[in-house]
């Protein structure tokens, strides 16, 4: 059911772990399926993301999107990192099954949460960033039956 890219990132997840004294840490949870993702970002004085690490309790898609998301934000500016949407992550992974789309939202949300934490710690506002919800409701359409 998963693409080869997803399986690769699941089997060999990049950037698993924690960053001590990270510039920003975000933890988000999907109450519906009970999964949790924690993202650590190390951001330098120029606002470049030097390092990104994660810990995830969740399905294969959750692990793979965490891994891919950390890969995608590394080396980016904060503004660029904000463009790493769940769609971008999914595309980079060659797609996800429909029931797993919400897992990739978790990854997007985790980045935002870590950036929010960074902004709060540094008393700045990041344009276009809103306080992330802890609870991501999935956007799949429910058919009538």
């Amino acid at each position: 059911m998963y693409s080869e890219k997803v399986m690769d990132h699941f089997q060999n997840p990049r950037n698993v772990g924690e960053i001590e004294d990270a510039s920003g840490v975000g933890t988000v949870g999907n109450a519906k399926c009970g999964d949790i993702m924690r993202m650590f970002l190390d951001i330098d004085e120029n606002g470049i993301i030097r390092e990104a690490k994660f810990k995830t309790f969740g399905c294969g898609a959750a692990v793979a999107t965490s891994s891919m998301a950390t890969e995608l934000v590394k080396g980016k500016t904060i503004q660029e990192a904000l463009q790493v949407t769940n769609k971008a992550v999914m595309e980079a992974l060659d797609g996800l099954p429909p029931v797993k789309v919400h897992c990739s939202l978790l990854a997007e949300e985790a980045i935002h949460a870590a950036l929010w934490d960074y902004a709060e710690k540094n008393h700045i506002t990041i344009e276009g960033l809103q306080k992330p919800k802890n609870d991501i409701s999935e956007g799949e359409e429910e058919e009538d039956y």
């Binding site: 699941f10 399926c33 999964d35």
Partner: peptide
């Protein structure tokens, strides 16, 4: 979490199942 366990077991040729929501597509 269960689904991750199942995929890893499958990679070792072991077929198993889980009560995890992530395997069922139902979220609960």
């Amino acid at each position: 979490e269960g689904e991750s366990m199942l995929i890893m077991l499958d990679m070792k040729g072991i077929c198993a199942s889980s009560g995890s929501a992530c395997t069922s597509g139902s979220l609960d």
